[in-house]
Design a protein around this nucleic acid. Sequence first.
DNA 1: GGCTCCTGTTGAACGCGTTCAACTTTTCGT
DNA 2: ACGAAAAGTTGAACGCGTTCAACAGGAGCC
Lengths: 232, 232
Amino acid sequence: MGEPVGADPDPAPSLSKAARTRSAIIEAALRLFREKGYDDTTMRAVAAEAGVSVGNAYYYFASKEQLIQGFYDRAGAEHRAAADPVLATERDLAARIMGVSHAWIDTMAPYRSFAGRFFANAAEPTSPLSPFSTESSPARTSSIALWRDVLDGSDTKVPRYLADELPELLWLAFMGTVLFWVHDASDDAARTKLLVTRTAPVIVRAIGLSRLPVLRATVADLVGLIGELKTL
Amino acid sequence: MGEPVGADPDPAPSLSKAARTRSAIIEAALRLFREKGYDDTTMRAVAAEAGVSVGNAYYYFASKEQLIQGFYDRAGAEHRAAADPVLATERDLAARIMGVSHAWIDTMAPYRSFAGRFFANAAEPTSPLSPFSTESSPARTSSIALWRDVLDGSDTKVPRYLADELPELLWLAFMGTVLFWVHDASDDAARTKLLVTRTAPVIVRAIGLSRLPVLRATVADLVGLIGELKTL
DNA sequence: GGCTCCTGTTGAACGCGTTCAACTTTTCGT
DNA sequence: ACGAAAAGTTGAACGCGTTCAACAGGAGCC
């Protein structure tokens, strides 16, 4: 390839030609998705906008659906950036959960019109875009790590027997929020924001209550069940 | 239409020609879906199998996706039939929940290979097939009614302040089960069955615990939130 | 019967996502 | 520097879901 020999693998100004073509296609796709939505954006248009042939676009992306992965990566990074200030300053757990969730809702706002279409594709179990698929395992891991940060940086003490599973549980709850958001047609995602605002304190209280003897056995059962389900 | 004047609206032996064509198409579609899956079944093949032209199939069904509605209706009825014996004999709430859930899993078993594809379509918010859409409101209502029966016929007392919302909450929890089932690749849906078996007693215990003063306020808050979310 | 609607019915045609044989360019061992 | 293998690139072609102008038949009215 046109890369200088021995250069560092991915310097921003001089990406390999292949990498540049790749991101030109994603760039074109996202622009068009935003302008005309997912369904009304044709692969022919994406290729033309990126200055390549249709066949070439398919050399880099196995399908139109795969272009969405590029969107995910970008959105994930944007979310991180928007969530970091909250995680750096706020110590109250409920506020951290709310802050990180709202950060996500805000970064996704520009894409809301067509993001529903995306997540529907992701809902199909055989799709590599599914948040539970092995293909999206890296994205999932880093997303769960984000929720671990939410917990770790807070002043709330988590019971030992919950500590390991709780980040994943928060992530799962957040996936529920995303599902709600997808179906939420209210202005400015007001309903989703209400859901988050009202749910976050309940989660914190539930964590506190999970120490109570009446609940402890039940909660421990559920945590054990999750472990079982993952290994079955 | 060819219907005798003043005849009862839909006598089984002599359906109107239109209705017969309609169900011939659904019949053909389901047969082919089962044989070759959703994606590998073409509308041309469905039309041929039903003995009509492609255009005619589109006269009765707005899209290939709409054929799925026929599948839903059928599956819903089958589930009812399979659940009724449980509801008629069993009084223990956990057993009723498990029985009705397992009945669903069993009736859906033959369709599992392609049902995931269906539910993915249903996950798209704008789709009329979405369980939350206005188009599927009748199916949703009757499904919630089923879960009301589950509660009403049991010997468990439900706190007043929960009684109104609980059937819908059980339905919602069951939608979660369905989502899990869609992603469950285990033999005979073993993981989903484990989930149901272990979750049902927890639900019953949670209903009992919801009377406790420590929890009551929180649970009431959540119930109130649901009400708010629906009206916003 | 003749006329007008409305309900059905048809298959060719359209635009789409995707594939593929053919071609060009780059890489790399010698 | 050379040549073969690998990587990149092309657009016509395929099969699909879907649309639509055109046509057929029956119901109701005169």
